[in-house]
Computed example of a mutant assay.
Amino acid sequence: MTDAPVMLCAGEALTDMIDQGEERWVSRVGGSTWNVARALAALGEPAAFAGAISRDRFGDALWAASEAVGLDTRLLQRVDRAPLLAIVEKSEPPRYFFIGENSADLHFDPEALPQGWSGALRWAHFGGISLAREPLAATLVALAGQLKAQGVAISYDPNYRNLMTAAYAPTLERMAGLADVIKVSDDDLRGLFPGMEVDAALQRLRAFNPGAYCLLTRGGQGASLFRGAQRVDARAPQVAVVDTVGAGDASVAGLLHSLARHPGRPLQSHLHAALAAGSAACQQAGATPPQPPAMDRLFEQLEGEAQ
């Protein structure tokens, strides 16, 4: 496979069906790992998404949106199965459910990927509901282990959803243990570790892999980045927020972009890159990838304020 991707995101690409009231619904392309892939491509990374989508109009929209940002589609499989749908009944606070029994995403087949597809990989990102839906979950956990053994750095964002019951705990521990980067929000921690305070839940999560970078986001309150005994904190830059859909996914992409392009940066600057990407995404409607000029401007602002 010539000109193979350097960054990979593997998991689910889906369609959000959003209630507009009065029995009106609007569809939007989405999926946490797919959002990260698009954001990486928009930031100029040679990125691919590995997953399976349907052959209907919903799959067509996902394919077109992938191409629109320059995402490598050679690892994106199309199968004759129904689409995966997220039915969003309410946005704030979120209330939703998924329709996808035996849907396209579950039929992703790594054995069908082109020869040599992973030869140039340096980073691979996993997470979202794909790791809570069998048989896809087992396929992706195995793939993450294989890539880690190959020397590929692993990124993991559990992105808690109500599918992640107590049965998800072994996957959480396994993926966190493999990961070089773990991204989690305060809401994720409350869902993953019910009944625990956020700080205690974070300690539990980091104990699975103390040496990994760990990005903790708190929405408009800012974020913290940990590595070993190091910790840095920063507030999110002030922006005109259109909506926050996809902001967490963009922050993962911003951090991975920074680590890949500027590995020698101090921890604080990597955190600023994550916040800049997440905040840039908030300036647009829907899970739209952050625009590089906006991210660069916000990054320079955060760097200047820290001096």
Rank of each mutant, 00 (worst) to 15 (best):
L8I: 13
E12N: 11
A13H: 06
A13S: 15
D16N: 08
Q20W: 05
W25Y: 15
V26A: 08
S27N: 13
V29G: 06
L40I: 14
L40H: 09
A47R: 02
G51I: 05
D56L: 06
D56H: 12
F58P: 04
G59K: 03
S66W: 00
E67W: 02
E67G: 14
V69M: 08
G70T: 07
L71C: 04
Q77L: 09
D80G: 10
D80F: 01
D80W: 12
I87T: 12
G100Y: 07
E101V: 12
H107Y: 14
E111C: 02
E111W: 06
L113D: 01
G116V: 15
S118V: 04
S118G: 11
A120C: 15
L121M: 14
R122P: 08
G128I: 04
P135R: 07
T139S: 08
L140C: 02
A142W: 09
L143R: 09
G151C: 07
S155E: 01
P158S: 10
Y160C: 00
R161I: 10
M164W: 01
A167V: 03
G177H: 06
L178R: 04
L178V: 07
L178S: 03
A179F: 06
D180K: 07
I182H: 07
K183D: 03
K183H: 05
S185V: 09
L192N: 14
F193A: 10
P194I: 14
M196C: 15
R204F: 05
A207D: 09
R218G: 01
G222P: 05
A229K: 13
R231V: 14
P237Q: 10
V239F: 06
V239H: 02
A240S: 13
V242K: 14
T244L: 01
T244C: 08
T244R: 11
G246S: 13
A247H: 07
V252T: 13
V252S: 08
L255H: 01
S258T: 01
P263I: 00
P263Q: 10
H270P: 03
L271T: 04
A273W: 00
A274C: 04
L275A: 03
L275N: 00
S279K: 01
Q283K: 11
P290N: 07
P293W: 06
M295H: 04
F299N: 00
E300M: 14
E303D: 13
G304L: 08
A306I: 09
A306G: 11
Q307E: 08
